[in-house]
């Protein structure tokens, strides 16, 4: 009798411990995914095809600066979580006409000055975009 009772108690402890472990693993998973989903948007600047600068976009970030390359320039303006190329000396100014970027995945490109800016971070689940 006593042996069976002890066994039952041990089983209870093991079962309880495993339930706690399972619960913990779910919590860790939840936090892990959560941290990815709500990742802060980051402005990424590529110059001449290579990574040039990364900037975390926060609510109260206000900033304007030039990126120069080969004697040419693009002026980048940041207003909170939105970014744009405000001015440039390229001929067609397609990068300027692109306007404000405010969502992850959005890109503005200046082909003549070989500059690309994009907002990276969590975006909707696509593998690529046809444009």
């Amino acid at each position: 009798m006593t042996v069976i009772l002890v066994m039952n108690n041990i089983n209870k402890w093991i079962t309880g411990g495993l339930i706690v472990l399972a619960g913990l693993s779910f919590i860790v998973l939840y936090i892990y995914q959560g941290s990815q989903d709500h990742g802060q948007p980051v402005l990424v600047i590529y110059k001449n095809g290579a990574l040039y600068q990364k900037l975390n976009l926060t609510k109260d970030l206000h900033k304007e600066f030039n990126v120069t390359s080969g004697g040419h320039f693009n002026t980048i303006e940041i207003k909170g979580k939105a970014v744009r190329i405000k001015e440039a000396d390229c001929p067609r100014k397609i990068c300027v006409h692109t306007g404000w970027l405010h969502k992850p995945g959005q890109i503005a490109v200046c082909m003549p000055n070989r500059l690309k800016i994009s907002i990276e971070g969590r975006s909707d689940n696509v593998d690529d975009i046809s444009f």
Partner: peptide, 20 residues
């Protein structure tokens, strides 16, 4: 299947209006 976003022609590059 691959999920390919289709560019929204009125928004900055990288903004898609639908998914294929």
């Amino acid at each position: 299947a691959w999920r390919v976003g289709i560019q929204n022609p009125l928004a900055p590059r990288g903004t898609f209006l639908g998914i294929l």
